[in-house]
């Protein structure tokens, strides 16, 4: 199975990268750009075949390493 972990800065944490991307989009002529937030996606191949167990494992990985929960939130999808 594959775990797809999306890590984003928590709401309320300043995201200067997102701000810069939003600004650049405006410069390129795209209109109607609201708030832009940047994060990262981490894909992990897992030997596990049970979706619930894969989900639990990926969540533990996220808490321990992939996300810094002081400033980031994460979401796990199993595919």
């Amino acid at each position: 199975m594959k775990a797809i972990v999306t890590v984003m800065l928590k709401t309320g944490v300043l995201d200067p990268q997102g701000k810069a991307i939003g600004h650049a989009l405006g410069t390129l002529g795209f209109s109607g750009i609201g708030e832009v937030r940047a994060g990262k996606v981490i894909e992990i191949e897992l030997a596990e075949t049970d979706a619930a167990k894969a989900q639990a494992a990926a969540e533990e990985m996220s808490r321990k390493l992939l996300a810094n929960t002081v400033i980031e939130s994460f979401k796990v999808e199993i595919a």
Binding site: L9, L14, P16, V70, I71
Partner: peptide, 17 residues
């Protein structure tokens, strides 16, 4: 030290990038 939990908080990208 913050990542290891020995000090609280975190260091983010500089506000001015």
């Amino acid at each position: 030290l913050t990542e290891a939990g020995l000090l609280p908080g975190a260091l983010l990208r500089n506000a001015g990038l």
